[in-house]
Simulated assay, not measured.
Amino acid sequence: MKLIVGLGNPGRKYEQTRHNVGFMAAAKFAALISASPSKERFEGEWAEGNHGGEKFAMLCPWTYMNASGQSVRKAVDFFKLAPEEIVVICDDLNLPCGRLRLRPSGSAGGQKGLADIVRHLGTESFPRLRIGIDRPPEGWQAVDYVLGKFNKDEKETIEAATTRAAYAAIEWGILGVTPAMTKFNAPAE
């Protein structure tokens, strides 16, 4: 089984915010693989499906971004998953809006949800797919920016980016991290 983890914050207050691009991409992923109807499991939204001969699961932790690791750990322990069988999709302030960056491992880079998953799993050696949301404008606090909603121009870019991220997760699950990196780390055309 390959586990796709979309990071974000639960509840209407956080819908369509920059910090929730992981949830957005995971929802698109579940739709693309015709996953089972989602249900509550492992303190999050859970769905399963098969695609391209691979069994997939999607998890969107409801533990809030900064405590994402406890939800992920429960799923990993239950299914006895190796770190390389998980990909975490999250926002990234250091990438231009809409840019994707898939990596097989690495530091949390200031992303608190990733940092909590690293802490709970005890390793940085799991793939992560970052979706660029840009740096905050001059005078903005990072927390206000990531919890803010996309402006009109950004919405279209993020819609396309979260769709590309969903396809990247499928490619990662079927072909592996290197082919997916080669195809999806380049700027969108």
Rank of each mutant, 00 (worst) to 15 (best):
M1G: 14
K2N: 10
K2D: 02
L3T: 13
I4P: 06
V5G: 06
V5H: 02
L7H: 10
G8K: 11
N9A: 10
P10K: 13
R12S: 15
R12A: 15
K13G: 14
Y14Q: 10
Q16F: 12
H19E: 13
N20G: 10
V21W: 08
G22E: 12
G22C: 11
A25E: 10
A27G: 09
A27W: 02
F29R: 06
L32G: 08
I33E: 04
P37K: 13
S38K: 14
S38R: 14
G44Y: 04
W46R: 03
E48P: 03
G53C: 06
A57M: 04
A57H: 10
P61E: 11
T63H: 09
Y64T: 12
N66D: 09
N66Q: 06
S68R: 07
G69V: 04
Q70W: 09
V72K: 11
V72A: 09
V72P: 07
V76W: 07
K80V: 03
A82S: 12
V87K: 01
V88Y: 00
V88R: 01
D91C: 02
D92G: 08
N94K: 01
L95C: 08
L95P: 03
P96Q: 01
P96R: 01
C97Y: 00
G98D: 01
R103S: 11
P104K: 12
S105V: 02
S107C: 02
S107N: 10
G109R: 03
G110V: 01
K112M: 11
G113K: 06
L114Q: 05
A115E: 15
A115R: 11
D116G: 01
D116I: 01
D116V: 00
L121F: 14
L121A: 08
E124S: 13
E124P: 05
S125H: 14
S125W: 04
F126Q: 05
R128T: 00
R128F: 02
R130S: 12
I133Y: 06
W140Y: 12
Y145K: 05
Y145I: 04
N151M: 02
N151K: 06
D153S: 14
K155T: 15
T157R: 15
T157E: 15
A160G: 07
A161N: 10
A161F: 09
T162W: 00
T162L: 09
A168Q: 04
I170G: 09
E171D: 15
W172I: 03
G173R: 12
T178H: 03
P179D: 10
A180P: 13
M181N: 11
M181D: 08
F184D: 05
F184H: 13
F184Y: 15
A186K: 15
A186E: 10
A188C: 08
